[in-house]
Amino acid sequence: MRTQAEKGSTFRALHQGSGAFIIPNPWDAGTARLLACLGFEALATTSAGYAFSVGQRDNTIGRDRMLAHVADIVSATDLPVSADLENGFGDDPASVAETIRLAAAAGLVGGSIEDSTNRPGDPIYEHQLAIERVRAAAEAAHALPFPFTLTGRAENYLHGRPDLADTIRRLQAYQEAGADVLYAPGLRSREDIATVVRSVDRPVNVVMGLQGVQLSLAQLSEIGVKRVSVGSALSRAALGAFLRGAREMREHGTFNFADEAVTYRDISAMFEA
């Protein structure tokens, strides 16, 4: 087993490569081990994927349960793990800093803090508070005895605010406040992603797996993206297959879905190691 410091250094180094790397998002120990088995070099959690696996909506899990979940993902493999820490589970900067310390204690070597409030009608923290929250997270992260990679997230696009300039301005400010990686989920065009990459000087994470967006890892590397996550897309893809099978049984009384299933022997082999 690698130490947390080793994982932290490995994870940071992945962002310094010439191209982009994919950090896929498992939602339980099993999917984490499958991704490790396929050779991925780091894992990211998905708050939505985990919430769906326990029959809840995203952003309803709470800090304690989420940290217990990410600890499960950490212990499932020897890979570095970065967690989706939602908005830090609190409005005030002190709560966000505490979340980072707890995340480190859970074995993580990275985590993201969103600037979304979870309040309809007022979905995004105003600039100053948003910056203070990232600053508090960065100070907590950088006081740890190992490299902890903090991702600052600007959530405008996920909340009906497709304002590229404001999103970039926020990412620039989060960079100044100490974020190590920057991330604006929901960007769809290659041109907008390239603009964000050019406008900041920290590695940029991009989420793929949104419907209607067709950019490959090679294309994203070419415009300077360093990290590609898929959010809850793998979870939703798996649940999509699950629902198709369930509906087929319920509506037609047939079982053809099993033709698409991974074989018992193959999946067992992947869990052997």
């Binding site: 590229l164 300039a165 000087d201």
Partner: peptide, 21 residues
């Protein structure tokens, strides 16, 4: 207006980045 705002924001980001380099 949004495009123009993006231009100024990108200009600032690009120049600041290159200065830091």
């Amino acid at each position: 207006l949004a495009e123009f705002k993006t231009y100024l924001t990108e200009l600032r980001g690009v120049v600041a980045k290159l200065q830091r380099q």
